[in-house]
Amino acid sequence: MTHKSAITLTINNRDHAIAVEPRRTLVDAIREDCGQTGTHIGCEHGICGACTVIIDNEPVRSCLMFAVQAEGKKIRTVEGLADGETLHVMQQAFMDHHGLQCGFCTPGFLMLAVGVLEREPDISDDDLLDVLSSNLCRCTGYQNIIKAVRAAAQKMRK
């Protein structure tokens, strides 16, 4: 009845052939079935944003999608941001501006910020602030995340 179906998830341009029940959330499949544990799970109901990934150029909560719904789509996770040893501008900015402490929320914030800036490079600083209110961080107090994302935004626009 609710048996597993064989699907292929394409994560950071690599295909993962897996078998999942329809109820398997995308974030569980990314972590448990595909072994890509950079994407984190916080609340599992859409509040915290730790599970944010980019699917077909849209930042989304991967705990609010079922894995079977992502078949045939391009999934990007934090593992795909760096180019070899070179960090993505956003990752470098988080380091430079101390945008993380424990790092639990960081993959979600990185994918959120990169996802939105790729879609809307000219987004205003005020609107960026509103975007960053999407995700929760228990450590930093947000100020350094905001600084990091605004600095990276300037670089990404060039």
Binding site: G46, G49, T52, E58, P59, V60, R61, L64, M65, L112, G115, V116, D130, V131, S133, S134, N135
Partner: peptide
């Protein structure tokens, strides 16, 4: 629309 939930939720 800007007042509904958050950006990633508005994508879906």
């Amino acid at each position: 629309a800007r007042h509904i939930a958050h950006y990633p939720i508005r994508m879906r």
